[in-house]
Design a protein around this nucleic acid. Structure first.
Lengths: 114, 114
DNA sequence: CCGAGTGTTCGACAGTCATCTTACATTGCT
DNA sequence: AGCAATGTAAGATGACTGTCGAACACTCGG
């Protein structure tokens, strides 16, 4: 019975930070990285909860990818939910935009990157 | 005659980058630093061309301050003009805002820093 | 011409960060 | 139970960065 029953072997649920509690410098630092920009842009072009971490094609290994998602969580940019062995992602558009108006739009603008 | 005559000993004029030619990552990285945030906030609360580099009281020495101003110039955030031995500064509000709408406002918002 | 004030450059140093490899935990399928 | 897939944790490493001290360059005033 694959119910959402608790008990023994849970996986530690991902730790999130709400955008309202994110310092400005943390948000800027999180966005000041080419890999993370690509992650949130990929995320922005897909429906919520449809992409698991391994579905992003950035030129880094799993470990680095995991690290980047941790940074994005801490910056209030991404929310994650476990489903089976996968960890599904969602871009926190509204919440983040309420805290830092316009910033996410800037980061998503398909301007430049390199 | 202290004219603007050329000839021998010029001081190399500061090299500027127009905001239009600044990559997004450069702008974000430039703003993702507490010292530089304080510099542009100080700059924003004084009239243009009234502050020389040594007039900012950030807790770093001259060398580091000079470095930070170089980063700000490269990011299209600050314009500098030599007057006597001093180097006067100006925040490039409109130009930068045209390139990255809302970003400077965010950085100047007296929210948090630490 | 000398000296004070101002700012840049250079070398060194410490701290942070992005990355990799390896090992481990969890989940689900067979 | 065994196994493949997914993601995290830990340690190592290389690169970048913010800082300082010292040396240098330029400007202006005595």
């Amino acid at each position: 019975m694959p119910e959402q029953a608790e008990g023994g072997g849970h996986r530690p649920a991902p730790v999130h930070t709400h955008p309202d509690h994110v310092p400005l410098l943390t948000a800027l630092s999180a966005l000041a990285d080419p890999v993370r920009i690509r992650l949130i842009r990929d995320l922005a072009t897909h429906p919520d909860w449809t992409l698991s971490c391994s579905n992003f094609d950035v030129p880094v290994g799993r470990a680095a990818k995991s690290h980047h998602f941790s940074v994005l969580r801490d910056a209030g940019l991404v929310e994650q939910r476990d489903q089976g062995p996968k960890r599904l992602n969602r871009l926190r558009r509204e919440e983040f935009d309420a805290r830092f108006p316009g910033l996410l739009d800037l980061a998503l603008r398909a301007d430049d990157i390199d």
